[in-house]
């Protein structure tokens, strides 16, 4: 018997092959890093009635009240994430979305015309209007 099956196969590898394998593996890892990187957001952008009313850095805790046509929407920013803490809208979709942490994420409180989005990533929408 000529050793374990694994050894028999590895015998076919030459020095340069190991090098090629390593370079190729590095290329694979790099492609994952390049293509699947969710760009980390660093700012939360708050809009009211389509206009930007605040850009909040995500590195410190902050609460912001934004006035809209039907009341006040409260935005909360925490380390690396942001959410709509409360909203006067009837269905509460934007509140129930919870914390946003991925680049490009958006929570829209349509009745009160307030939106919260994070920068970075691909913008999944072209524009917002109410």
């Amino acid at each position: 018997m000529a050793g374990s099956p694994l050894k028999t196969w590895l015998r076919h590898l030459r020095v340069g092959d190991v090098l090629t394998l390593a370079v190729a593996a590095a290329g694979c890892v790099a492609s994952f890093a390049l293509m699947w990187r969710g760009e980390a957001p660093d700012r939360a952008i708050v809009r009211a009635g389509g206009r930007i009313v605040a850009e909040l850095p995500l590195d410190r805790h902050r609460e912001l009240d934004v006035a809209g046509p039907i009341g006040t929407t409260r935005i909360e920013v925490d380390s690396g994430r942001a959410r709509v803490a409360s909203d006067p809208g009837p269905r509460q979709y934007c509140v129930r979305q919870g914390w946003l942490s991925r680049g490009g994420a958006v929570a829209i409180c349509a009745p009160n015309q307030v939106s919260l989005s994070l920068n970075g990533g691909d913008n999944s929408h072209d524009s917002l209007s109410y």
């Binding site: 076919h12 340069g16 092959d17 090629t20």
Partner: peptide
């Protein structure tokens, strides 16, 4: 054209696959 002493079919195979 890679020197065959150091680069075997595995290198060729990887080049071709990529």
């Amino acid at each position: 054209h890679l020197p065959r002493r150091w680069f075997g079919p595995v290198s060729h195979s990887l080049l071709a696959a990529f």
